[in-house]
C-alpha cells in the first residue's frame, strides 16, 4: 500500500506539466554540454529516457536495480557508452542525470510540503542512476583501453621478409614481457611458415634496454636457434650498447650489429648470397 503511494507521489512530481519537464531537462543538459552533442540527438535521448523513467516509476520501481528499471538502465548504459566513446568526461556524462534534479527544484518552492519526501525519494533514485552512469562509463573506457592495447600489440610486431630465407622483426616502443612473448611466438611461427634460416631482430625503435628486456631477447634467440635458425640483433644504439655492458648482460655467442644493413649483409652472406657492387657502371 505504501509502495503504491510512493509511486503516486513520484508520478505526481514527474507528471507536473509533463512535456515541459522533459524540455527543461534537455535545455539544462544542452547548456552544460555545449554544442558537442547534436541538439536533436540529445533531445531524442533524454525524452526516451524520461519516458522510460516515468514508465518505471508508474510500475513502482523503488531503486536503480529494480526490475522495472531495466529499460531505463539499458537506455542509460547506451547513453554513457556513447559519451565515453565521444571523449566526454565522467562529470559531463553524469550531469545528464543530475540535471533532472535541478529541473525539479523550482517546483518544490511552489509546491506543498508533502512533495518534499517524494522529491527526496526521487533524488535518491536519480543518484543511483547517476552512479550507474559513471560505472558504465568507466567500464566502457576500460574496454576501450584493453582493445587499444591489443591493437597496439598486433600493430607493433610485424614480421617482414627481407630476402628468401631472411626475415626481420623491427621492434618499436618499450618491450615488456607480454609484448616479447608475442614477438617470440610470431617470429618462431614465421620461421616455420617461410622456412627461413636467418632472422634479424631490429631494436632501433626500442628506447631502452634493461636486464629483463635483454633476458627476453636472449630467450627468443635461443628458441630460434633450437629450431635451427640463426638470429642477429641489429639497431643497437651507442646508448644501449653502453647500458648493456654496464648492466653486465652477457650476449655470448649472439651476433649483434649496429645497423639493420649490416645485419642483412651478414644474413645474406650466411645464406650464401653474394652481393657485388658495380662501381662506376649504372645498370
Amino acid at each position: 500500500m505504501v509502495k503504491r503511494d510512493n509511486a503516486a507521489d513520484l508520478m505526481g512530481l514527474l507528471s507536473n506539466g509533463d512535456r515541459d519537464l522533459a524540455a527543461m531537462w534537455v535545455a539544462e543538459v544542452a547548456g552544460s554540454l555545449g554544442s558537442r552533442v547534436g541538439s536533436a540527438e540529445l533531445d531524442r535521448e533524454l525524452r526516451e529516457l524520461y519516458e522510460a523513467l516515468v514508465q518505471a516509476l508508474r510500475q513502482g520501481a523503488v531503486d536503480v536495480h529494480s526490475e522495472e528499471m531495466s529499460e531505463v538502465r539499458a537506455l542509460l548504459a547506451e547513453l554513457s557508452r556513447n559519451r565515453a566513446r565521444q571523449g566526454f568526461s565522467p562529470s559531463e556524462t553524469a550531469i545528464s542525470v543530475f540535471a533532472l534534479k535541478r529541473v525539479l527544484e523550482p517546483m518544490l518552492e511552489n509546491g506543498s510540503a508533502d512533495e518534499i519526501p517524494a522529491y527526496l525519494r526521487l533524488a535518491r533514485i536519480l543518484d543511483g542512476l547517476g552512479l550507474f552512469t559513471i560505472e558504465t562509463y568507466t567500464r566502457t573506457r576500460d574496454e576501450l583501453i584493453t582493445a587499444q592495447a591489443e591493437q597496439l600489440l598486433e600493430l607493433s610486431t610485424p614480421v617482414v621478409r627481407l630476402w628468401d630465407g631472411v626475415i626481420a622483426v623491427p621492434l618499436v616502443g618499450t618491450l615488456d614481457s607480454a609484448r616479447t612473448q608475442v614477438v617470440m611466438e610470431k617470429l618462431l611461427q614465421a620461421l616455420v611458415d617461410t622456412g627461413s634460416e636467418q632472422a634479424i631482430i631490429d631494436i632501433t625503435g626500442v628506447p631502452a634496454v634493461d636486464t629483463q628486456v635483454a633476458q627476453h631477447l636472449l630467450k627468443t634467440i635461443v628458441a630460434a636457434r633450437l629450431m635451427g635458425a640463426e638470429c642477429t640483433v641489429s639497431g643497437i644504439s651507442p646508448q644501449i650498447a653502453q647500458t648493456i655492458v654496464a648492466l653486465g648482460i652477457e650476449f655470448d655467442g649472439i651476433v649483434t650489429k649496429a645497423s639493420l644493413a649490416d645485419a642483412l649483409k651478414l644474413a645474406l652472406r650466411r645464406s650464401g648470397v653474394d652481393m657485388v657492387a658495380h662501381t662506376g657502371t649504372r645498370r
Binding site: 617470440m184 618462431l188 620461421l191 616455420v192 635461443v222 628458441a223 630460434a224 633450437l226 629450431m227 635451427g228
Partner: peptide, 18 residues
C-alpha cells in the same frame, strides 16, 4: 635435431634448456 615446433622451442627455453 630438426623440425622443432615454436611451442616446443619456447618450452625448452623457459625450462632453461638451451
Amino acid at each position: 635435431v630438426v623440425g622443432m615446433r615454436p611451442a616446443v622451442a619456447i618450452t625448452l627455453v623457459e625450462l632453461g634448456l638451451s
